[in-house]
Design a binder for these strands. Sequence first.
DNA 1: ATCGGCCTACTTCTCAGACAAATTCGGACG
DNA 2: CGTCCGAATTTGTCTGAGAAGTAGGCCGAT
Lengths: 262, 262
Amino acid sequence: MAARRRAKTVASKASSSNKALRLHGSIARDLGTRIVSGRYRSGHVLAGEVEASERLHVSRTAYREAVRILAAKGLVQSRPRTGTRVSSPEQWHLLDPDVLGWAFSGDPEPEVLHGLFELRSIIEPAAAALAAVRRSQTHLDVMRRALDDMILHTLNSEEGRIADKRFHGALLRATCNPFIISLTNGVTSAVHALTEFKMRGAALKRDPSPDHVRVYDAIAAKDAKRARAAMEELIRLAIMDTPMKERPKYSAKSRFLPELEE
Amino acid sequence: MAARRRAKTVASKASSSNKALRLHGSIARDLGTRIVSGRYRSGHVLAGEVEASERLHVSRTAYREAVRILAAKGLVQSRPRTGTRVSSPEQWHLLDPDVLGWAFSGDPEPEVLHGLFELRSIIEPAAAALAAVRRSQTHLDVMRRALDDMILHTLNSEEGRIADKRFHGALLRATCNPFIISLTNGVTSAVHALTEFKMRGAALKRDPSPDHVRVYDAIAAKDAKRARAAMEELIRLAIMDTPMKERPKYSAKSRFLPELEE
DNA sequence: ATCGGCCTACTTCTCAGACAAATTCGGACG
DNA sequence: CGTCCGAATTTGTCTGAGAAGTAGGCCGAT
């Protein structure tokens, strides 16, 4: 008994860096990270439940619940007799906040970075245009406060980044489109993580608050066209502020893209 | 023992209409459907594991795995002492294929329908433009074959709808952006379900294949601008072909939108 | 009287071991 | 040579027992 308890504690420490995650949660995170980072390739068959749970010094129950989580996020698929195998990347729910977080836990690859920005530059300008039309006064107030906090603290502090997140969140909620809101829940948290990533090098050179103010003004004026343009500019500048090793050229070959079978 | 086995079979039949879902899968689906359909309101606390599993005549294990799935999709959150409670709608992963499917299992509300089309009309034209630039010959071939099948079978048959799905899927894969691909995995299956929904009334009046051909031609010609315009038109027409009771006016009040707290 | 820290009860979490169900693979048989 | 059936293997489900975490009340101190 005592030996097993100790083992469990060790496993928990080794696997999860911290947080209030339960055992199954940490296991899911570990496996998930290994999958999205490419250490377990698509098609790879995980060890059987008995062996895997023994190796991790946890019960089959805990391990199974972890696998259920991964399956719910499209990362694996399990069937009797064949076992649990890593799904093809095109089936991964990449916009799931957890998956996104796992993908950004190491060094995000330039390809992923660029893909995310590309998605943002599609969604957010359109969202800004919608928000300009549909925003209520309450939405506007929330954005205003977030903007003030952001200007006050700047993106170099954690509080400033949270304010930035609040701003984008409120903007997207103002679209009144549940899908856009849900979509951007994931994206904003990734951007949050990303901003931290930007900071790993040096402090931010450019102050992005003027861009945000322009977006805010346009939405306050209910000017959809201007809101869209301002947001396009904001994201264009944000991309330029992000240190990317190289601009990835899009090709059909990528860990994240499926094979095209004839 | 025998009594319990029988009970389990009954529960399985009663809960899941069919499919190769396991027990935990059907339970997750039932609970999930109840949540997204509003029968369990946000904040509602589910019965404890013991009571719930007894009521469903299943083991706690199965019930717990179901809850784990729902938690992975952001529908619920469970903690010791307080129990498992339905999360706020803004935390739901609405673009998860399962959640989307559950949302469309009953009568999809006009608001949801419109929200989905709005998202499509943002994403897909942009995707078409990207695809026009980045598509490989292989992408093009796949799209061509899907298009031919679609024209052959028409959307009135299941095969035709699958071909339509293949077409949109190939188009989105041609963007070479993993996030867009992942995003639209969900959306296309929802559209698939939706097309079936359209058919519940009468057969489709308009033949949408010319629209698809125009999109294809533009992508074949690598003409991004024309591809975007053609796709915009395609979706505009698809919206008009969808019977919606009323055009929902966007307001801050909706089951799917969070309260704006001051 | 209000604030802070313990304590308790309640719920989920984890464990262990057993049996059931599903599916693949290979071999027997027509 | 094809078809079917059985066996082996893997996940799926069940049971029952503790362990761990947490909200809310209790109590004491300031």
